[in-house]
Simulated scan of single mutants.
Amino acid sequence: MPSLYITEPSARLRKDGGYFVVEVGEEVVQKLSIETVEDITVLHCVNVSSHVLTECMIHSIPVSWISNYGLYYGSLWGLKTVDIEKHMQQFLMANDFEFSLQVSKVMIMAKARNQLTILRRYHRKDTKPEVAAKISDMVALLPRISTAHSINQLRGFEGILSRYYFEALGSIVPEGFAFTTRTKRPPEDPFNAMLGLGYSMLFNEVLASVMHVGLHPFVGHMHAIRRDHAALVSDLMEEWRAPIVDALCLSLLTKKMITLEHFNRVEHGCYLTKEGRKILLYQS
């Protein structure tokens, strides 16, 4: 079942019988059976009819709103997605220190191994000593994950691993897209702009899956539970950042499907153009 992304600011999403219809002006650009749509993500300025929203709540199809640059604003979902018994169990498990610690260890280890897979794959094609050094640094740190005695200590290891990874990744990307660190809100360079939008897409997909099975998206283990933060979604997406988003962005650059012409540099950051967003979204 597909995810529906609507990125054209002048677009309108309406319901026509058993179909969702996307229009731009007088032109119908997409028509999908309601039964085939799993989740919907729209730019904040897209017009979504009340009939669509009602249908989505009836069929438990989450609708999420994002900014032009992928910043998540919020989602709408129906009552059928709320399983209060699961929520109560989640809160109990979130207060179980040992359970949260062990789950977090699994998440961080899986994330690190996927990051290493990406680095090794590209390092075989274009050997660079600085990348080899960061791979060695990451491998040396992995055993400490299993011996961590607190969530905060694990977060510290995860931060160090991510720093090593992004430093190596910055050396792997094609010339013109090199970067030294992960930046967001705003992204300061083209590759970070791609990652930011890609991670927002991944966030929306995981959020939709979490809500479909009746879990509470704000009750997690590795990420701190706080206001305005879907901690469980952040937990679950960590493992998939590298193999899904990072790999996609690298592929688009190496195949020259996205070039520097697909970015706008402004005073407050660097962002994909409308055409660049379409390429990234349609290839995902």
Rank of each mutant, 00 (worst) to 15 (best):
D246H: 01
V210R: 00
G70D: 04
K31Q: 02
M109K: 06
L116P: 00
H87Q: 13
T180R: 12
D228I: 12
K256F: 11
R226Q: 10
L260V: 15
L53G: 02
I225T: 07
D235V: 02
E27G: 08
M237V: 04
E275Q: 06
Q102P: 02
N47K: 12
I160D: 07
V103N: 09
R144F: 06
V233S: 05
I145Q: 06
L13D: 03
Y69F: 14
S200Y: 15
E38L: 12
S104Q: 09
L53Y: 01
L202M: 03
Y72H: 15
E8R: 03
V21E: 08
S136L: 06
L195N: 01
R12V: 06
S60V: 07
A140T: 05
Y271N: 03
A140L: 09
I6Y: 00
D189N: 10
A133F: 02
L53T: 03
K184Q: 15
E261D: 13
T81L: 08
K256P: 02
G25P: 01
A168G: 01
V37Y: 10
M237P: 00
L142I: 06
E85Q: 13
S50E: 12
F157D: 10
F166Q: 03
K256Y: 13
T180H: 10
A112Q: 04
S3G: 12
D83I: 04
R155S: 14
E26Q: 06
C249E: 14
V213N: 10
I66H: 01
L79M: 06
T81M: 11
Q283R: 09
Y69R: 15
V210Q: 09
G196Y: 05
S10Y: 01
T183Q: 05
A193M: 05
G170H: 00
I258P: 00
L4F: 06
V52G: 00
